[in-house]
Each structure stands twice: as C-alpha cells, then as structure tokens.
Simulated scan of single mutants.
Amino acid sequence: MAILIDTPMWPAHGTVFAHLVSDASLAELHAFAAAAEIPERAFDEDHYDVPERRHADLVRRGALPVDGRTLARALIASGLRVPARERPKALAAPLRQRWERLLPGRAALGGELLERWSEPHRRYHTGAHLFAVLTALQGLTDDREVPRAVELAAWFHDAVHAGTAGRDEEDSALLAETRLRDAGLAPGEVSEVARLVRLTADHQPEADDDGGQLLSDADLSVLGREPAGYRRYTQQVRAEYAHVPEELFRAGRAAVLDQLLGLDPLFYTLRGRELWLAHARSNLRDELARLRDGGRASAE
C-alpha cells in the first residue's frame, strides 16, 4: 500500500492544488491525512485536495510524488475511484433538468427534494442514489418513457431518511401525498406514488404490479454493481450508520443481507435479472461471508 500525491496544478482559491490518494485503502488515506492534520473538508469522495504549500511536507511524511496520469491509473486500479455518476455534487444540475421535464413549473418542489437528498448525514442515500435509480428505470424500459408515477416515486422514496427502516418509507410516502396534492396532481396519481414509495420498505411487489416491479428493481440495482462499486456502496452504508457500534451493525446488516438473499425473485423484471442478478447474488453472499468472518464488510 502507498500514499500518492501528484504535482500541484489544479487552480483554486488563489493557489494550485494536488491530489492525495491511496492505491489500496481509504482507511490508510484517512489515517495519513489525519496524522498530517489535513482537514476532513478537503476530502472529495476518493482523494484529498491539498494546496501547493503542503506538497513538500506531505512527501517528507511518506507520500510518493507521481505525475497526474500515474496517480489516476493507480486510483482506478485500486477500485477506490468514484466515477462522476456517483458524485452527488456533479449531479445537481442533471437532476434539476430531469425534474423540470418530469413536473414542469414545479421547480420549488424539485429544489426541496434535492435539498433533502443532500442532507449532510447521508452517505449512500444521496443524489447519486437518486440518479442511479432514475438511470436504472431508463435501462429497464429500454429508454421508453417511464410512467410518471414510478418516476415521481423514485424522487420521493428516500426523501425522508433518518435511518429507521419502515418509518422512513412511511414518512416519505406521507411527504409525497402532501406535496403532490399541493402541486395539483390528481388524487389517483398521488395515491399511486405513495403506494409505490411504501413498497420500497420490503421490495415485494405483486406479480401484476408493473410499476412496483420497475421501482423495486431500480432501487436494488446497486446490488448488481461490479465488485469495486459494490464495495463503495457497503462503505457508504456503514458511514451512514457510523453511530452504531460495530457488533450491532454487523448483526443488523447480516439480517438485511439474509432478507435480500431470501427474496425470490430478487429482481422481478426480465431485464433486471439480465442486468444485475448474477452480480447481486455474488456480492450479497461475499459481503455476508465477510460479516460472519470477523466483520470485514467494509474491507478497503
């Protein structure tokens, strides 16, 4: 394992910045940054931004100086690189555009929802998760128009997130009922959106529930990521529950994984099974094995 730093060349705030990364472990990177008294606010998803004046000191402390291309290759090879589609800050404008197409003239409501998805305690249930669900819906429908009620349910399904399973989904559904009724949507559509939001509590739509199956599959599409992407997801989930002691977290997370592995089907649509099922089963089994073998679900 090594800490790498590239040449300072990224201008901001009257100076230029370098990137500080690990080629293997975020834990190693955070430990190095803490020892060097780099503030937490300098961390940006997979690297620290450090000003030019700190470069020589960080090299003396053990960071390996490399060029930008070498650093980028090492970060990608490590599996720690966070792609743009998973960076909430980069997704604000695309999400606002999607909302305007979905519900024209209701920018204030869209802004409220984006503020909720951007709450500082969130690590996984951020705008990146919302963007991923919306993108997955498009993939499930082969870019045909997604039913508006389903897309609205995606926007509302984690709009309330306090970390309380069942209660969060219910509160999100109640928020959808209130806001969409105030926005002038027909009662039937409001009820359908709320029903779909509540369904994300257990991801078990009925066989004839096309909208529920679309939303359930899109919401669980993260389970079918490639291993590095799935590992980032598990780390984000752990960070959201940082207040929970490790032993309790492992027990609770293992119960969630057992429940997901017990779902038959896990994905309801044919397209969802084609896209995500094989990776999802493997990811879930591997994480559960790590949890039961010393609690290494958040392995770097």
Rank of each mutant, 00 (worst) to 15 (best):
R290Q: 14
E192R: 10
D202M: 08
L175S: 06
L185V: 02
N283W: 01
E240S: 09
G184V: 02
G188P: 03
A228F: 03
R144E: 13
D171H: 12
D49A: 13
L130N: 03
E170L: 14
L130G: 00
G110N: 02
P83C: 12
L257V: 01
G262N: 11
R179L: 04
L277T: 08
L260K: 05
R106I: 00
D264E: 15
D217H: 08
L284W: 04
F249D: 09
A24E: 11
G295Q: 08
A194F: 00
L263I: 03
P187N: 02
R87I: 11
D46E: 03
E28V: 05
R281S: 02
L214F: 12
G14S: 03
V59Q: 09
D208C: 07
E240L: 07
P265C: 13
S25P: 10
R198L: 14
E192H: 04
L275R: 14
W117E: 08
E240C: 08
T135P: 06
A239F: 09
T7L: 08
S191P: 00
G184M: 00
R281T: 01
D142T: 00
P227R: 13
L277V: 05
V146E: 02
V82H: 04
E170M: 09
L134D: 15
T178N: 09
F267R: 07
P245D: 15
V160P: 01
Y233A: 12
D23I: 04
L277N: 06
A2G: 03
A154P: 01
S118Y: 05
G295V: 04
A299P: 00
P227M: 14
Q236G: 11
G212C: 13
L20M: 04
L220T: 01
S216A: 15
A27F: 05
L266A: 02
E240W: 04
G252C: 12
T164C: 10
L260P: 03
R232L: 15
Y230C: 03
V197C: 08
D23H: 02
R41P: 03
R96K: 14
L95G: 06
A201H: 12
R167C: 06
S216Y: 06
V66Q: 03
E192I: 02
H243M: 09
A136P: 05
Q204F: 06
E247Q: 15
A132F: 10
P147R: 06
A34G: 10
V244P: 07
A278M: 07
L175C: 05
G212T: 11
R181W: 06
G111S: 11
F32L: 08
A72R: 13
F156H: 00
E246I: 12
M9L: 12
R225H: 13
R232I: 05
R232H: 14
E112A: 04
A90C: 08
L214K: 08
